[in-house]
Design a protein around this nucleic acid. Structure first.
Lengths: 233, 233
DNA sequence: TCAAAAGTGTTCCTTATACACCCATGT
DNA sequence: ACATGGGTGTATAAGGAACACTTTTGA
């Protein structure tokens, strides 16, 4: 163990490292959804979470961003200001039949406005709604490859924990100001009707926001007050 | 991208994978502490968290267990029933001057009774108390190598979050039954005096435990009721 | 008998939950 | 005018925070 640097490192066989990302959004229908793409190459044709292998000396967050750019055609500016969040390292050596692969699962939240145009343009993309704690896949596909269903479960769990307490911490809502109803749609999508109490929600969240003097009108009904995030949320 | 298995994987250079573990305990003095060992080989002599490189097709949890066995002399049975918990993947390519290394940080909680005899026996081991959110290292060493201080910070943060709500979820306490004071020592160590309200603590926790008919006597003062964990905690 | 540790009671709050009800708009 | 969505008032219950106080032991 006197160890010149290169000697030490070369002793150890190294696994391939993959990154996978559950890009979550709230659809126009008010449902929680996850971005899928149809694979080319390995397991071609099956729907899966975007992901790829890590390149040399590449950071995980960068790999995620590039994956979305390269495989899904999401322009880099659609991801600016958004940091993917690590969820879990999947390390079962038999998880990937191509060899020994560790996969680092991530969660990235994007507003539907950023995703919609891109998904509409690429037939290889879809937003799968999440119901009963698992994604409803296109084309009667039953499950995601490489145990990716678990990634979605973990992502959802993480979101649930955050959205019980804090107004839209992951920023599904992009605009500077929003009404409590708009906020409610997001939280409802994340939490589901079991954890939904509109009344408590309004009071709990408005406490954590700053009310503006502006209003939102347009639809039927009374105009809604617009709120702004407070400093540190 | 037609990709026969081996072809695809071999295209990508692979990083070395390291595992590091913050073994946390509550000392006899009622302080939160972390297990350190004096490194041999690379950075010999400096105190650091136990860790090593992942071996071929080895699972992360297994690598952690073996690290503790091989580097710290912790017998395997001292870890049975305890699962290391993933905290974070450190991916800065310049973090380790030996090369491109990803490090998966873990948290493992062990009762002091399991650690004490081993630490006493090996001069290369120490339990560093954690004060003001960082470990107080032996021998006037200022910081841990490879940015491991951040691992401790994350481990502590994780514990804090859990210990605000739930009675000893990571089981610093090993015995089947314990008094509220014994439980209190653990929570106090984790939470610090800022988040400490003995009175609220008793009521909140006893609600989540089952009282037994047994008592603990011995010291001065009134005998204390012994509690047992309820089914799912 | 007294120090020490365990445990209870009480008061004052804040917040969750669940209603019923009023308000302001577009059509 | 009325349907529609926005918003408040109120009553009840549960829990947090901070006290003072009682209980039961060993020395």
């Amino acid at each position: 163990m006197t160890g010149s640097s290169s000697f030490e490192l070369d002793k150890f066989p190294r696994p391939s490292i993959a990154v996978d990302v559950a890009v979550m959004t709230v659809t126009a229908a008010g449902e929680l959804g996850v971005l899928l793409h149809r694979r080319t190459g390995d397991k071609a044709g099956t729907w899966a979470l975007p992901g790829r292998f890590l390149r040399e000396r590449e950071r995980l967050a960068v790999a995620i961003e590039r994956t979305l750019e390269e495989k899904c055609g999401l322009p880099a500016r659609d991801i600016t200001g958004r940091a993917p969040r690590q969820l879990h390292v999947f390390d079962d050596p038999d998880r990937d039949d191509r060899g020994w692969v560790l996969s680092v699962a991530h969660l990235l939240v994007l507003p539907i406005e950023r995703l919609d145009p891109v998904v509409a343009e690429h037939p290889g993309l879809a937003i799968a709604p999440i119901r009963n704690d698992h994604a409803v896949l296109p084309d009667t596909q039953k499950q995601l490859p490489y145990g990716q269903d678990e990634i979605i479960a973990r992502a959802h769990e993480e979101l649930r924990r955050e959205y019980l307490e804090t107004p839209d911490p992951e920023r599904f809502l992009e605009t500077d100001t929003f009404t409590l109803s708009e906020l409610g749609v997001v939280h409802f999508a994340v939490l589901g009707k079991e954890n939904w109490a509109i009344d408590t929600f309004r009071r709990k969240m408005s406490r954590q926001l700053r009310e503006t003097s502006a209003e939102k009108r347009g639809g039927p009904g009374r105009p809604a007050a617009l709120f702004r995030r407070s400093r540190h949320s």
